[in-house]
Amino acid sequence: MHTTFYLVRHGRTLFNEKHLFQGWCDSPLTEQGIAYAKALHNGLKDIPFAFAASSTSERAMDTLHYIRPDLTPHYYKGLRELYFGDLEGDPSDLETKKEHDWIGYAYCNGEDRTQARIRFMETLKQIAVEGNVLVVSHGSVICRTIQYLDPTFQRGPSPDILIPNCSVTLLDLDDGTFHLRALPSTKYREHD
């Protein structure tokens, strides 16, 4: 079986703008976030998707709806962002975040980075079908998956910069094995 995943990071949110830790907590899409998601609708409208899924966070559910309102959405906890534990909703100083993004957040009752990547990739395997699958998920779990498949992928900046809002990353799954097909691209959201 061959699956191609179109991994989309949700549109920009209020907490992105306020620089608050947003893993399992959630905030609404901003006007710009909605505009990018609608642009992605144009960028992806000609792709035949056999399945569409997002995390259970409303920012991801809403992004999926703006991209392809014609598809039946499926929601999975396993596609959620890394859980930042007690830090959820706190101001996220970028320097502290840069450091801890590589260590994980188990120390404050959140998730370890590897643990989050594994449940994310396992969920992708569970929903895989023959053909293209649209997935709306989150910066840190997408970033960790890319780094796992391509160790040369840069580690410097925060996932927020490496995986832009409404970027699309292509991932192939062939008989249980993942391959990175294309790094995060914002070209799909440039459509008018």
Binding site: L14, F15, W24, C25, S27, P28, S57, E58, E88, G89
Partner: peptide, 16 residues
Amino acid sequence: TLFNDKKLIQGSSDSP
């Protein structure tokens, strides 16, 4: 929820 515990405003935003 977590934001109830943390006494943070939670209307259209959310926490576990």
